[in-house]
Amino acid sequence: MTSIVIIEDDEKIRNYLTALIAGSGAFNLSGAFSSAEEAVSFFENGLGDRVEIVLTDIQLPGKSGIDFIAWLKPLRPEIQFMVLSVYDDADRVFKALKAGASGYILKNTPSAKLIESLDELRKGGSPMSSQIARKVVATFQDDYIYLDPQENLSGREKEVLEYLSKGFSYKEIAATLFLSIETVRTHIRNIYEKLHAHNRSEALRKAGFR
């Protein structure tokens, strides 16, 4: 059973998600919080050591979901973060992805699909829309020369990103590049990891440490 934590300030939705996850049989709900601060103290007290997935809203009272991800990701790099958003809202979602999230899910996603997405995340799948892909491309293009090789995208990853930014689905990309869908997913997961690493080193650079 995969251990999961939810951060959602709306009580009704939180209850709905709680019921949904508890009833799925595949996940073990370790905690449901209404604010990032509650979740922070949960992890600081060592209660979240076995958590594998965090599902968080972006807009929260006090610290935002993005702040929370940025705080926890360096401490617990193995945790997968999933963002809950009202829409496929590229701006806000992308900020969260940069901070360390590997996926996002729309709040109006039907219940079955929601569990499916969480399951995919656990297995290494990470959704990326064309708009997000464009932003990722732009991010890596902006300060390309400063990048470490380990933060740099491979040729294949660049190809996958390019097709994504043109609106191709995973299936279409897999067919075009003669890859399996799993491989495409892996590439996307790797792109996310490099984006996170890039984001952290960029933050350090801006703070003057490099």
């Binding site: 009704k12 939705i13 709905y16 019921a19 949904l20 009202v86 709040k107 109006n108 039907p110 219940s111």
Partner: peptide, 21 residues
């Protein structure tokens, strides 16, 4: 629209789903 109407509609969608289950 996104913040006000969108979240309201999402609410409706989710709650009706909850009632359904």
């Amino acid at each position: 629209m996104h913040d006000e109407i969108g979240s309201g509609l999402t609410h409706i969608a989710l709650l009706s789903e909850l009632i359904q289950t």
